[in-house]
Nucleic acid binder design. Structure first.
Lengths: 261, 261
DNA sequence: CGCCACTTTGAATTAGCTCAAATTCCGTGG
DNA sequence: CCACGGAATTTGAGCTAATTCAAAGTGGCG
């Protein structure tokens, strides 16, 4: 559980238990706290609302853009992408959801969902009728706190995505993307030194505002620089020996030449 | 300055009164309804919370990144920009706020604000302590609805920004930006055929993920195509004879050659 | 009037895109 | 088991939209 530091001394080791490989250098308990926070939130929802659970498989659409809004979803397992399709035919992955994330907030204001929520893997969502949630909040203020916290976190997260898009070159955006994915796994209580990407290069590129070729080149570069490693077979699985290395890669992208003088 | 234009058959024509020239083709009362909605919301807040008002002038910082979160702000007049500064020194305008918009949602989850809220003009914000708001919501569910609606709308809006960034070329992003600004003025109940930009080209470029030169070129192009017109003096004021023209300009950007076959 | 910040425009440069070809992976059926 | 085919990926090469660099031009204001 305690990573053996940056320098990889770790043998591939069986994936069995031993989970929760984290590596935030600043606060090595941060991931643990975060994952507990997710677990606590889910527990609260389960206790107070006993939400209906729904199993999903890759490709399942939990709700589609334009459908009447009535229920929020909380992701308990698996991964989702939110896909937006504009009237003029532009298609865009606008966000990726992990365990503990809520789906459907955008529906509250308009009365209809504005995206498709598509499962990228086998997983489970909890269905929470918005009206029932509000009713339950009356008896249990903690529930309201949890709701607001989730909405607020999404707002903060969306902002970070926007920052990335606006201020980072393509290579760095890919690195940031992997870093966030690893972070999210850690928050979920899963091992984060190993990512099974559930997206094609084309989808990643769409999400990050670049072409699939650029994604591929960026990943190749990250591998060349030893920041990531591809699993022996299948280039969808990515090993991240040290999350910190991803962050410093981003930094390096920002200071292209200035280092010299 | 006025290049004799490619075709130019339209005479300058007086722009005198005739305010509120809107041009949503689908529903010509949409703007009116939207502005009533903003007014109703503000009325509700005023009646139930009697929030403290604060006058601001251009450059005033209502709250800064890192400050302890305690209160939300509702913009009653003026314009704000939200500015994010990352640890590594990247600075980014992450959103623009208009009348009826709320400021500070990002603070709920982290307990601190994550952006600077900077006034771009003389205006007024209403201060709403978050704890008091929650207390008031207990007696008045409508208040809670308004809060959730505002958070949800921001989530939806942030998504649209991201779509723009990812899927539109620079020219179109500038057009979209102006269109949204005009829309927001209409929602505020202000005339929307005329925009006084409170931002430099550099700020606009930062917000839209491009350089100031690109913004300038895009605006020049829009003027050349008669989609906008600059006021006689000062290139900060922009006339929009027809908002629809902005939208169709965006469309044109998306179909570069395909029109032929 | 003259400074200064902002804007516009042009010319050269480049990051990322498009197009194209080769390679790998994986499921399917003989 | 292997051969086959389609989809995803990688990599190269040229092209283009947008950036960078540079030089005027414009407006606001003490």
């Amino acid at each position: 559980m305690l990573t053996t530091a940056p320098v990889s001394s770790r043998p591939p080791g069986p994936v069995i238990a031993s989970c929760l490989a984290n590596s935030t250098p600043v606060d090595e308990h941060a991931d643990l706290r975060a994952s507990r926070h997710v677990a606590d939130t889910l527990k609260l929802l389960q206790d107070r609302l006993a939400p209906r659970r729904r199993l999903v498989h890759a490709g399942d659409v939990v709700y589609g853009a334009g459908e009447r809004f009535s229920t929020l979803y909380v992701l308990n397992a698996g991964f989702f992408k939110m896909v937006n399709l504009t009237a003029d035919g532009r298609e865009q992955v606008v966000s990726i959801k992990f365990r503990g994330d809520w789906l459907g907030f955008d529906g509250i204001a308009r009365g209809t969902y504005s995206c498709d929520a598509v499962a990228m893997d086998t997983g489970e969502v909890w269905m929470i009728r918005y009206d029932e949630l509000l009713a339950a909040c009356r008896d249990c203020p903690a529930l309201l706190d949890v709701l607001h916290e989730a909405m607020s976190r999404q707002i903060g997260r969306d902002r970070e995505s926007l920052m990335s898009l606006c201020t980072l070159p393509a290579d760095a955006r890919v690195a940031e993307f992997l870093r966030y994915w690893a972070d999210s796994l850690a928050r979920s209580g899963l091992r984060s030194d190993q990512i099974m990407l559930r997206m094609t290069r084309a989808e990643i590129g769409n999400y990050l505002g670049m072409t699939l070729e650029t994604v591929s080149r960026a990943l190749s570069k990250l591998a060349r620089d030893q920041v990531i490693r591809f699993a022996e077979k299948g280039r969808r699985e990515i090993r991240i020996p040290d999350v910190g290395a991803l962050s410093s890669f981003v930094q390096r992208c920002l200071v292209p030449v200035t280092t010299l003088q």
